[in-house]
């Protein structure tokens, strides 16, 4: 680290992003925070209700259900997207035939529109003519057939698989770029010492990109807690709230239920829960400060 003799240069470098971020990122969420203490339908005058919205949230069973679902999304994403993304990056970070093709395929789901993803996966999961149930039938696994999205017990898990599928590519690409920063000399030296592939990965590659793996985990947690699009398009949180997550619940309370105050309180809670979860994770994993 360097100490800079002219701190105004730092100021110069930071001022633009900080201003944009403050005005268009922080101020709006502060206004939301303010709304969260109000009763407001968006049309009439607001009235101050103190922490009533928060109390309501804590007594609202749908809110707890959506929090539980959110935590499932976090677990599935961290345990699914990151290992698979990392594995793929390791596999494709070499000169093998067709690497470019496979790399593109790997990233593909990230660029496909959520609408297409949701229509296709809904058809895959459909209980009557769906691809999955047909596949189970023909392979003699008919007893495993489910009404995947229609049964509240399986619906959230069906969604989880789709979510993992959708975002593996994002972490794949992050890891792939991280792998490029590992100095070639390190790996070559290990090769000369006769280190095998596995040995190289465990002792050189992974430690070198440790920071980026942690970054990916934090991104994964924060992204999962904000999950909205896919569920909103695929099930709208149903049937009977069984796939509701905090962001979809917040959205429908705000714009469909016209409870701006309550919706704002929910969004502040999303922020607070994410913060807690991320603080715990970084503590547990012992992130080195940069």
């Amino acid at each position: 680290m360097h100490l800079l003799r002219s701190p105004w240069k730092i100021g110069l470098g930071l001022v633009l992003p900080l201003i944009i971020y403050m005005v268009f990122g922080i101020i709006p969420i502060f206004i939301s925070f303010y709304y969260s203490f109000m009763a407001w339908d968006g049309f009439s005058a607001m009235s101050f209700v103190g922490i009533e919205n928060y109390i309501t949230a804590f007594q609202d069973s749908t809110f707890w259900l959506s929090l539980r679902n959110n935590i499932l999304v976090v677990l599935a994403s961290v345990l699914g997207q990151i290992p698979i993304g990392l594995g793929l990056a390791l596999l494709l970070n070499r000169k093998i035939k067709g690497a470019k093709f496979f790399r593109t395929i790997g990233f593909l789901p990230v660029v496909i529109s959520t609408v297409v993803i949701s229509i296709t996966w809904r058809m895959i999961y459909n209980s009557e003519q769906g691809l999955l149930n047909n596949l189970l039938e023909t392979t003699g696994l008919g007893f495993l057939q489910q009404n995947w999205l229609g049964d509240p017990d399986s619906a959230i898990f069906a969604i989880l698989i789709t979510i993992v599928w959708q975002f593996v590519g994002l972490y794949f690409i992050i890891f792939l770029s991280a792998l490029q920063t590992i100095p070639k000399e390190l790996l070559e030296a290990a090769e000369l010492d006769g280190a095998g592939e596995w040995h190289k990965i465990v002792h050189i590659t992974l430690p070198s990109i440790r920071n980026v793996i942690l970054v990916a985990i934090v991104l994964c947690i924060s992204g999962s807690l904000k999950t909205f699009d896919l569920i909103y398009v695929m099930t709208q949180g149903g049937p009977a709230h069984s796939t509701e997550v905090m962001a979809t619940y917040m959205y429908s309370e705000t714009f469909e239920g016209l409870s701006y105050g309550y919706g704002s309180a929910l969004s502040i809670l999303i922020l607070v829960f994410s913060l807690i979860l991320i603080l715990i994770t970084t503590k547990v994993m012992g992130v080195k400060r940069t």
């Binding site: 809904r122 459909n126 209980s127 009404n147 999205l149 229609g150 149903g238 049937p239």
Partner: peptide, 8 residues
Amino acid sequence: FNTDLNTI
């Protein structure tokens, strides 16, 4: 009803 009533 059809069994997939809640998903279509």
